[in-house]
Amino acid sequence: PKGVLTTHANIEAQISTLVKAWHWSQNDYTLGILPLHHVHGIINVLGCCMWSGACIQFIHPFSVEEVLKAFIQTRINVFMAVPTVYFKLIQAIESFSESDQKELKEKMKGFRLMVSGSAALPVSVMEKWKSLSGHYLLERYGMTEIGMALSNPYLGERRAGHVGFPLPEVQIRIVDENNKEIELGDSGEIQVKSPCVFKEYWRKPEATNKAFTSDGWFKTGDIATIEDGYYKLLGRDSVDIIKSGGYKISALEIEEVLRKHPLIKDCGVIGIPDEEWGELVAAGIVCSEAIQKEELISWLKERLPAYKIPRNYIQLEDLPRNAMGKVTKNELKKLF
């Protein structure tokens, strides 16, 4: 990883922007369960909490049981986590008795804000969490280099599978491979200008120069499109955009479809090098029971065009993940 050099002014801008956008106050009480080497844990949770004079309770190491106990026993009203955490909480809550589920839902309905980030939130997880908690999770988009850039609204419609609108003082543009702004409806790279954007990569002038355009836009490497004003992430150009047979395919779109299969608990879609196609679409899947490849392909044919259907599959006990619970696609590639 490259060291991201952030100034005090950057950090102040990152925190104050979120405090305003997400209505933080000294009356808030949150849980600290995310690693503090990551912008989600250190800025979005701890930084905003301290800036506002709110209260934070740490749970380390992470424990589903301790989190749910804190939901019931404390005055928590703000909760931020990654999709993997919400998935684990859902599994635990579904094992509760009907009366315990009802008690927990009543408690969670009193929360002011619940946020998901650091990885794409499957729509299926969003909908299941809504039924168990009464909350439609707020999704947002950011990076260590830029803090948060886009967010679904605190007040107003939060759209599943989308990361909302630019935050105050954040300029966003979507461009093609030649840094030309794209037509509405097309997809391209997200580029950012903002007081939140970092100064440089630590002792890496060449990497810093490559990360910015000549006119000062930071190149995120993330691909998105705009639908009805809402930004929709298609994935990271280096790992989530698969270039196969002349097509640019979003791995996140295929993952969303795969998760709807009744036997698939989780999945990761990647491109593996191929002489004929450039890359072949492949999938690592975590299943509740074994699935035959032919059956899965037949099921997918009713839901995806042929060129998006994975050709290769491996069934795993779990997917390789980093400290934030995000699937590490490069490690998944090695398994093929």
Rank of each mutant, 00 (worst) to 15 (best):
E200D: 02
A21Y: 04
G245S: 15
S63G: 09
D100Q: 15
Y154C: 09
F165I: 05
G235H: 02
I249N: 00
G185Q: 11
G134Y: 09
N152I: 07
R303V: 12
L319G: 01
E289R: 12
V123H: 06
E103A: 14
L233W: 00
P1N: 15
I270G: 03
N312T: 13
I33N: 02
G161R: 02
S214L: 09
R112V: 02
G41F: 08
A70F: 01
N179R: 08
I291E: 07
G41I: 10
T7K: 08
I297P: 02
A149W: 00
E103L: 14
D237E: 12
Q26R: 15
S238C: 09
M108N: 02
F218H: 04
L137C: 09
Y201P: 00
Q26I: 06
M148N: 12
S214F: 05
W129C: 05
I146A: 08
I309E: 09
P166C: 05
S124M: 11
V239E: 07
E317I: 08
T74V: 08
V170K: 05
A120Q: 09
I93T: 10
N178T: 10
A81D: 06
E177H: 06
V115L: 14
G156A: 09
T225W: 01
A9D: 15
I42H: 04
A207Q: 08
D228E: 15
G164M: 06
S133N: 12
L263D: 11
D237F: 09
T328H: 10
V39M: 11
E317C: 02
A70R: 14
T7C: 08
Q73F: 11
E276P: 07
K243N: 15
